[in-house]
Design a protein around this nucleic acid. Structure first.
Lengths: 240, 240
DNA sequence: GCTTGTGAAACGTTTCACAGCA
DNA sequence: TGCTGTGAAACGTTTCACAAGC
């Protein structure tokens, strides 16, 4: 997607601890496994096989087993995987077995929506500060109680230090996104989730995940067009 | 991505017209190339080399050339690519050389933000209808003028037909997302962009792109943890 | 000089197939 | 029987290297 790419921005690699390198696609699927397992847990299922887990996500059972095996031996032959155990393990692997303090830059429409999004909190991500460079927005109170007060960018360093913030979300227009990213890196933010439709230049060691909403629609348009046209229009390779 | 995947949901394949199959990663990057080229165009640059384009996106020049070559011969040896020409070509390939009518289901926080998001319109995606199953929201006027009136789900079929809507965006809670997807498929929607944190089951032939906001933060958390821990905690493979 | 387009090699990922265990 | 974990084979993608053209 990458992006990565879901349009993922940086060429990322897995985390080779002491052992083998983990393929990036496997790490991406780990999040999906976790989501599915949590849903299984809510439905009071106690064990799950690689086949069941794979079917839910349109993956093969072998793929599921191999992905999980990169991180350890979590399964029980003849039984499958114990759901609660696997959930705990994957959370630990992904680093979501603890609370992450997150800041948001950009108090526009998207910023508002992100601030109110329940999905973050459920996964242990707490947005604890909001910034905007527009003086008219600074001082506004946002979100559900306890509300957050929009701060000016000059307070970034102090707030990041005071609240031990490690992750930053960029929800500003494309033309200022790089400046914001630079500022975040400067104050020691460890990872950036970028919603601005532009690629960011950051030092190695600061991971960036980019989500370009329009790009996803574009990919959809391509696939729909491909479905509709037996012979794609672009296959006419006109000579220059 | 992507991961897709960016956590992309369905295993997708490129569009093999008459020629070779196009790798899905190449199609994902095509969107990024277009974004970068449009930015180049705004800065009045007329030509661009595969090296320059690659550098902007952290890709190799060979990668850029190979990706573009899947779709035709767009370059000029010794010169590079003409920016305006390439923009036109890629838009045609992706299917964004025309207007797409899009509907939105879910008038919550995220729905509001998506409706107000300028990035869609710039790429030719027009949200022309909004639906919500909550009777209290039906009838509300949303977005910038000309505002859209929130419709009940029972009006879906009629509106899709009347307005020639081909794409649908799902921005509802996870537990009703599948029902909404089923409804969209039933009325003939050709592609779905899903923001609900759940995997969708749809018939083959209806492409789905999924964007799970929390998953992207999760991936970031993993990479930040990997940076910080010399030896990942999960490398302790305790025996069961 | 510069650049593209492309076959071939290198690399990475997924699938297969089966040993081993409950 | 049913299931996992895993080496090996199959497949797909990226990189290399260079012929051809401006």
């Amino acid at each position: 997607m990458a992006d990565d790419l879901t349009p993922q921005n940086q060429p990322d690699r897995g985390a080779p601890g002491r052992g083998e390198a983990v393929p990036a696609p496997a790490v991406r699927r780990l999040s999906l496994y976790l989501r599915e397992l949590e849903s299984f847990l809510r439905r009071d299922r106690h064990t799950i096989s690689s086949k069941q887990l794979g079917d839910a996500l349109n993956l093969t059972d072998a793929q599921v087993r191999k992905d999980l095996a990169y991180f350890g031996q979590f399964g029980h032959p003849g039984i499958g995987y114990r759901v609660d155990e696997l959930v705990t393990r994957i959370r630990c692997i992904l680093g979501t077995d603890r609370i992450w303090n997150v800041l948001l830059v950009g108090a526009g429409n998207l910023g508002h929506a992100l601030l109110s999004y329940r999905g973050f909190g459920k996964k242990g991500f707490q947005i604890v500060a909001v910034f905007d460079s527009d003086p008219r927005k600074v001082g506004d109170r946002l979100g559900a109680p306890p509300q957050l007060v929009v701060q000016g960018m000059e307070q970034l360093a102090q707030t990041v230090a005071d609240q031990n913030i490690q992750l930053g979300i960029i929800a500003v227009p494309a033309d200022v996104a790089q400046d914001v990213a630079d500022a975040l890196v400067k104050v020691g933010i460890k990872g950036i989730l970028n919603f601005a439709p532009t690629s960011l230049n950051v030092p190695e060691g600061v991971p960036v995940a980019s989500v370009d909403l329009a790009v996803h629609l574009e990919q959809l348009a391509f696939r729909v067009s491909a479905n509709q046209l037996a012979t794609p229009r672009w296959s006419t390779n006109a000579a220059p």
